[in-house]
């Protein structure tokens, strides 16, 4: 489905260039939920930017469904941690935005947006302004906006990082049930190991800068999952311990960097 082969990304800097990704390989299969974890500054977001066609790799190939990636892909749904609803549009018109950009007629896109909002638990807030929504509701609306055009793959870049713990947990449950019901492919970037294990089929651990894959861990927790149920299972604790020891080595290495 999604493939990075030998990808190297360098950013030009003042004193020489900065290598963000170093010969990185990553593969995400159709319908898979993969979490990308690593110390901050390890190039997690760079991976997403490469996949979204925002950053051109210096070497290596990036393919989506067999096709090389160049430029922004309409089939990729991108959700960042920033609040990106347009404040001058009603929530409904925000959810309908991606369809509007693609020229879907007004009636169809409003109907679809209404249905999606209901699905995301936002019914009744169609005509509200984004400022009237809570942080969690804004996030849901942003997810609905992306889902509206049936993306082949969802890329989430620490989407719930700015939210409080309770809201975050509810949204994680939402992502789980969304993924279980739609069978979409998700690449989820986070620095939160607990979140990664809770959600993913596979946790990919990146090294400190320059980013490389240092380990891949299959998460064999049973599905369907609920955040509260998995959290206390012995297998969860075991997995967390294993990955944490590897991650803490990378964190120590990251601290040694300027």
């Amino acid at each position: 489905m999604l493939e990075l082969n030998n990808v190297t990304v360098t950013y030009p800097g003042g004193a020489g260039s900065l290598t963000a990704l170093d010969h990185m390989d990553l593969q995400v299969d159709r319908g898979e939920l993969v979490a990308l974890v690593g110390p901050s500054g390890c190039g997690k977001t760079t991976v997403l930017n490469v996949l979204a066609g925002q950053v051109k790799p210096a070497a290596g190939t990036v393919r989506l469904a067999g096709e090389p990636v160049k430029g922004v892909l309409p089939s990729v749904g991108y959700i960042s941690q920033a609040d990106t609803l347009l404040p001058w549009r009603s929530v409904l018109d925000n959810v309908a935005l991606a369809m509007e950009l693609r020229g879907v007629d007004k009636k169809t896109r409003r109907e679809r947006a209404r249905a999606l909002m209901a699905q995301m638990g936002l019914a009744g807030f169609e005509e509200s302004w984004p400022r009237e929504l809570s942080g969690g509701m804004k996030k849901r609306a942003a997810i609905a906006r992306v889902l509206a055009v049936d993306p082949a793959i969802l890329m989430m870049d620490e989407p719930f990082a700015p939210l409080d713990a309770l809201t975050r947990q509810r949204l994680q449950d939402d992502i789980l049930s969304l993924w279980e019901t739609t069978g979409c492919t998700i690449l989820y970037v986070t620095h939160d190991l607990t979140e990664a294990i809770t959600l993913a089929d596979r946790v990919v651990l990146l090294s400190a800068r320059p980013g490389r894959v240092v380990g891949t861990y299959a998460i064999d927790l049973p599905r369907p999952r609920r955040v509260m149920d998995v959290k206390f299972s012995p297998r969860f604790v075991e997995l967390e311990k294993t990955i944490w020891s590897a991650l803490s080595r990378e964190l120590a290495a990251a601290e040694g960097q300027p």
């Binding site: 925002q54 922004v72 990106t84 347009l86 693609r102």
Partner: peptide, 16 residues
């Protein structure tokens, strides 16, 4: 900028 970027990532043209 993040507003502009997010709309570009939804596939918006320069004019849009």
């Amino acid at each position: 900028r993040s507003l502009v970027l997010s709309v570009e990532l939804l596939g918006a043209t320069r004019g849009q």
